[in-house]
């Protein structure tokens, strides 16, 4: 039951792009086409979940015992950068087809603030899912990271679908490109606001 609440809350209620404003740059950057949006979503999903688990463990067994939590930001970003590199190398060796699909998005992910944002959120924020506020344990953190990145994928794929239609419509000159895209996301965010309060 609790996991269900985490999932619904992370995907719909506190959608990472539409409610938390994380990862907006790549969201705008690669949502032109449905196929690239799907690829990017897959890569983000993979990296966010992996990075959250790794940074969670590093924080718990290394930074906290040593009293070095003030180095969180710097440690996490280095871990994420190294992790992305590693995923790239491993993927190239193990699954060239998957690498073909996700490869070009991987370097972009290091500076996707969604990854660092989720990693920091998980170890610093208290969460309430129908019970008392508490820090997430490893299992909850993993589910939260996975659900959050699925929410990212959902928003991205929905938006890419709308944007493909948008590119064929007659938009006033000054609205062309990003302005109309932002206004569209605004309307999507309004729709997602309807989910608030259900968890």
């Amino acid at each position: 039951m609790e996991f269900l609440l985490i999932i619904v809350s992370a995907i719909f209620v506190n959608n990472i792009v539409l409610a938390q404003f994380l990862g907006v740059c790549p969201f705008m950057g690669v949502s032109n086409k449905l196929s690239t949006a799907t690829g990017m979503s897959g890569a983000v999903c993979f990296v966010i979940t992996l990075a959250t688990v790794v940074t969670y463990l590093i924080n718990k067994f290394f930074l906290v015992p040593l009293g070095l939590t003030f180095l969180q930001t710097i440690a996490f970003i280095l871990v994420i950068a190294a992790l992305v590199q590693m995923v790239e190398i491993v993927l190239k060796k193990i699954s060239p087809s998957l690498y073909q699909a996700l490869g070009i998005f991987l370097p972009l992910i290091t500076t996707n603030c969604a990854v660092l944002g989720v990693a920091i959120n998980v170890v610093t924020k208290e969460f309430t899912f129908g019970d008392a506020a508490h820090m997430l344990n490893l299992g909850e953190a993993t589910v939260y990271a996975l659900a959050t990145s699925l929410g990212y994928g959902l928003a991205m794929i929905l938006f890419a679908g709308i944007r493909e239609q948008l590119s064929r419509s007659n938009v006033p000159e000054a609205f062309k490109g990003l302005p109309i895209a932002f206004i569209t996301v605004g309307i999507m965010a309004l729709a997602f606001l309807g989910f608030s309060g259900i968890v």
Binding site: F127, T128, G130, S196
Partner: peptide
């Protein structure tokens, strides 16, 4: 005392 509010923890 912390409880579950509308948007998250309410302390």
């Amino acid at each position: 005392s912390t409880v579950d509010g509308f948007g998250g923890p309410l302390s």
